[in-house]
Each structure stands twice: as C-alpha cells, then as structure tokens.
Amino acid sequence: MLSAEIIYGLTGVGLFTLGLRATLLQASLLARILAINVCGAGVFLMFVSIAYQGLAQMQVPDPVPHALVLTGIVVAVSATALALALGRRLRESKDE
C-alpha cells in the first residue's frame, strides 16, 4: 500500500518538474510566473510530505518543514509581486 507521504511526495516531484518545464517553455511573463509558482508548490508539497512521515513515530507531523514552507509561501508571493510590477513597468515602457 502506498503511504500518503509517498503519494504526495511524488506529486510534488511531478509538479516541480512540470512547472520547471513550463517556465522554460512559456514566452509571456505572466505565464512564466504562474509556472514558477506551480514549480514552487511542488517543492512545498515535497517538504510537507517529508513532515507527514513523522506522524508514525510522533503522532503529529514534524513542524519544522511546515514552518519552512510557510516561509517559502511568503517568499513566493513577494517574488510574484515584484515580478508582476516589473512586467507592468515593462509594458508601460513599450507603450511610451
């Protein structure tokens, strides 16, 4: 039987790679930002699956990866905001 950490861990690997592939393939900035976010979500899913493995021994998941992923989510939204602002400014400079 497949345990949850393996199912979600492998899903994370899949999301990471498909996000990476799309980042390299997409031309528009917005699509790239989406792809990078999917890629990051895959990494986060790997971390949380690793945490879930602690359930067997400790009755609760390992909180450290959870804290790391929380940090990662905040970093991702910060990077998204900066990238979108750069993209907007770039479009405006095209119009000028």
């Binding site: 990078i36 890629c39 990051g40 750069l86």
Partner: peptide, 23 residues
Amino acid sequence: LQAAVRYLTVGLLGSLAFLTGVG
C-alpha cells in the same frame, strides 16, 4: 527592466532547485 525580469525568473528557478536539494 528586461534584464531585471530575466534576472528574476532565472534566479527564482535557481533558488527552487537549491530548495529542492535542501528538502
């Protein structure tokens, strides 16, 4: 601006690769 956008996307991919290794 164009260079900065590319710098950012490339850098983010690099960070994510690093983070995967950390995991």
